[in-house]
């Protein structure tokens, strides 16, 4: 039993693992920086082009929302809930840099694309292997 060999395998093994993952850190960080720069640039471009329209957004949103509450498809949805959902969508779009107006035409409960047993199966399968 050669302890020099054993210790060198241990050290080299850890070094290789760290080297591989440090390389990944560098690449993923670079990818993240490029992605952030690119999305910031897109955001600035959108802000610049829709700057004039931004003053109208609030005006545009309010009448659109109030006009359409009565035409919302689901009669069970409270008008306050409609207002909250519309405000959340508006804020999300502003965060993405999308300042164009929008119209809420229908609010309905989304049916899950997966049957409930499929969902249960996936939850069971995501337990640790």
């Amino acid at each position: 039993m050669d302890w020099g060999y054993i210790i060198s395998i241990t050290i080299i093994g850890m070094l290789v693992v760290f080297a591989a993952l440090i390389l990944l850190v560098l690449f993923v960080q670079s990818m993240g920086l490029l992605s952030t720069k690119s999305s910031n640039k897109d955001k600035k471009d959108k802000d610049a082009s829709t700057n004039k329209g931004s003053a109208n957004v609030t005006k545009e949103l309010k009448p659109t929302t109030t006009q359409n509450i009565s035409s919302v498809g689901n009669d069970d949805v409270d008008s306050e809930i409609v207002a909250v959902i519309t405000a959340a969508i508006s804020q999300m779009r502003l965060n993405e840099g999308n300042t164009a107006g929008f119209k809420v035409k229908n609010i309905a409960i989304a049916t899950n694309s997966r049957p409930i047993w499929g969902l249960a199966g996936i939850q069971e399968n995501t337990r640790a292997f």
Partner: peptide, 27 residues
Amino acid sequence: PLIANPKSFLLGAAAQFGIFGAFLGTM
């Protein structure tokens, strides 16, 4: 979560000392 915080890779690497520490122990 890993892409958002790539430094997590280093923690994943550090925990692999469990493998090589076990190798030392086995020998």
